[in-house]
Design a protein around this nucleic acid. Structure first.
Lengths: 233, 233
DNA sequence: AAAATAGTGTCTCTGAGACATTATTGA
DNA sequence: TCAATAATGTCTCAGAGACACTATTTT
C-alpha cells in the first residue's frame, strides 16, 4: 500500500479496529491471536484488526476484519464496541487510534484464514494470552475485553453467544465455568437461568450420543438480560 | 485554522472528543450544552468538544476541552471514556470519529466560558436536553452518557462525584433521586450507603444553616464500588 | 410553639448459597 | 451392571422493600 496525500484542517489519524475474539474451545475460554507479518512488530502476536475504510462505519469494519480473520460471518457472532485506545505513542508508524471490539461466537474454531497483515493465526487459552507479550497495547485491550465478557455474562444473554444455536444447560453452565474459572452449583445454576422468563426455551428435543443421560435441548428465548443476575463471587 | 498537507498509508480521520458534562444544579440533573458558532451546524446546540491534538492522549484532550468549556480543572471532576461514534456521515466537513466521554462534577455551575467553537454555553436539565434537537449525532451520545451515569451510580462511587468534597447523606440521596427521577426511602438508603465499608466516612462535623436539624457531614471513604449495589427499580 | 429537616429500627418476603440423590443412557 | 452424565428440592441466611416516629434546629 502506498502513501497518499491528504489535506485536513485538523490533526489526522488513522483509525483501526482491533478485535478480542472470544470463544470456548473444548471447554477452554480462548482468544484468537495473529502473528504479525509486514513491518511493524513483525513476528509478534497481536489481536486481529485492521484499518477502517474511507466510507466504512466502525462496526462494519469490525465485522469485515472478523470475517477476514476467521472466515465467520456475522450471523451467529455477537460483536460490541469495547473502548478506544489512542495513546500518542501506541503505534510507531503514525498516529493511530484503535477502536477495540469484543467478538463472541461459537463454531469459529475451524476455518481460520490468515488476514492481510497476519502470517499466522491461532487460538490461545485466555490465560496464556494474558501472560504473553503482545504487540502494541494489545495486552491492555485483551485484559479489558476479557473483563468485559466476564462481567457481561452476569446480567446479559452474552453467555448464549458462546453456545451453538441449540444447546443444553450443562453446556451453558460450562460456558460460565470456563469464563469465570470456577465451578458453579448445578441446581442453583438451573434455578437462575430458568427463573428469568424467556431467557432459555425448551425445544422438547434431547441430545443423545453422550455417555450418560441425554440432556434437554434449549434455544435462546429472546430475553437479553438476566434478572436477577448470575453471581460470580 | 488553515488546512495542512499530510501523508498517510491509510484513510485519514480527524479525531474529536465530545463531552457529556453532568452535574446537579439546584437539585436538577443537568448537562452542559454549547451553541455552535463557526460554519457547521451553526446556531444548533451541541455537546462541548473539540479535536484531539497531534501529540495528545484522548483523556488529556477531554480534560483540556472540559477546562476550556467550563473553566474547571481536573481535581474534583470524574472523567471516563464513554464510547466512540464514527458513522461515515456524522460530520459533513470531513471524516470525523468522536471519542465521547462522560464528565461528572459539582461546583461547575459558575464559571462557564465560551469555547473556541462555541458562541454560548448553558446548563440544560437532562430531560429538556434529551427532548431537544442537537447537532450531529449528539442526541445519541447524550442518551448513552446519561444511561451510563444512571447505571454507574448503582454499583460504583460515581454519585460521590456529583457532591462537593464534604457532603451530607440527604444531599447524596438527592443526587440519586435527581438522576433516577424517583424518590428513595431514606432509611433504606442510609442502610445501604453505610453498609459498604469505607464508602462514606463521618467527619464529626455538622452542617448548620438550614432550617431544620443539622445534618452530619461526610467525606468519601475511598471505596470505589458499592456492594450490595443501590437498586433503581 | 410551629415548621422544617435529619435521623433511626423492624418485619416480611425474596433470592443466594450450601447440600445429595434419583433418572437415564451407552458401554 | 456399571459408569457416566443429567435432572431435581429444601433449608438457612442475607438483603430488599415497606413502613412512622423522634430529635434538633431556625424562625
Amino acid at each position: 500500500m502506498s502513501r497518499k496525500l491528504y489535506t485536513s484542517k485538523y490533526p489526522i489519524f488513522a483509525v483501526a479496529v482491533d478485535l478480542v475474539v472470544l470463544t470456548i474451545r473444548d471447554g477452554v475460554f480462548s482468544v484468537l491471536l495473529v502473528r504479525r507479518g509486514g513491518d511493524t512488530h513483525a513476528g509478534e502476536w497481536a489481536l486481529p484488526g485492521g484499518f477502517v475504510g474511507e466510507q466504512e462505519d466502525l462496526i462494519e469494519a469490525a465485522y469485515r476484519e472478523l470475517e477476514e480473520e476467521t472466515g465467520v460471518g456475522g450471523e451467529r457472532v455477537h460483536l460490541e464496541q469495547l473502548a478506544t485506545y489512542g495513546h500518542p505513542d501506541r503505534d510507531p508508524r503514525q498516529r493511530v487510534v484503535s477502536v477495540a471490539h469484543v467478538a463472541v461466537g461459537s463454531g469459529m474454531t475451524e476455518d481460520l484464514v490468515g488476514g492481510s497483515d497476519a502470517v499466522d493465526a491461532r487460538w490461545w487459552s485466555v490465560g496464556e494470552a494474558l501472560a504473553a507479550d503482545l504487540a502494541f497495547d494489545h495486552h491492555e485491550i485483551l485484559r479489558d475485553g476479557v473483563e468485559r465478557a466476564r462481567s457481561r455474562i452476569e446480567y446479559t444473554d452474552l453467555a448464549l453467544s458462546f453456545c451453538e444455536e441449540r444447546f443444553t444447560l450443562p453446556e451453558l453452565q460450562r460456558v460460565y465455568e470456563a469464563i469465570w474459572g470456577r465451578e458453579l452449583d448445578t441446581r442453583n445454576f438451573v434455578r437462575k437461568v430458568t427463573r428469568t422468563r424467556d431467557f432459555v426455551r425448551e425445544t422438547g428435543e434431547e441430545q443423545r450420543g453422550g455417555r450418560g443421560r441425554p440432556a434437554k435441548v434449549y434455544v435462546a428465548g429472546g430475553a437479553t438480560s438476566l434478572v436477577p443476575p448470575m453471581t460470580r463471587d
